[in-house]
Simulated scan of single mutants.
Amino acid sequence: MISHLDHFVLTTRDMQGCVDFYSDVLGMLVVRFGAGRTALRFGQQKINIHEYGREIEPKAHLPVPGSLDLCFIVHGTIAELLAHLNAHDVKIEEGPVRRTGASGEIESVYLRDPDLNLIELSVYLNG
Rank of each mutant, 00 (worst) to 15 (best):
I119R: 02
M1S: 07
P96C: 05
D14M: 04
A102W: 06
R112I: 07
T11M: 13
S3K: 01
D115L: 04
I78N: 00
V64I: 15
S122P: 01
D24Q: 09
I49E: 06
F72N: 04
L40A: 03
G27I: 05
N86L: 07
G53Q: 06
T100M: 13
L70D: 00
E55N: 15
F21Q: 01
Y52R: 00
K46Q: 14
L10W: 01
K59F: 00
G34R: 14
G17L: 08
V64Y: 11
I106D: 02
H61E: 12
D24A: 12
Y52D: 09
E107R: 01
E120R: 06
R98L: 15
S108L: 06
I92F: 05
C18E: 08
R98D: 04
I119D: 05
Q16S: 12
G53K: 12
I92V: 15
L118E: 14
L5P: 11
T12M: 08
R32H: 13
N48L: 00
E51L: 15
A79E: 15
F21T: 05
R99N: 04
I78H: 01
L81R: 02
K91C: 05
L85S: 01
V90C: 10
D6S: 14
C71F: 04
G66K: 03
T38D: 09
R112T: 09
L82W: 06
G34C: 09
S3A: 07
F72R: 03
Y52T: 00
T12E: 03
L62V: 15
L70M: 10
E107Q: 11
L81P: 04
I73L: 02
L29Q: 14
V30G: 02
F33W: 13
G95E: 02
V123F: 02
T11S: 11
V123I: 11
D24H: 08
I78M: 03
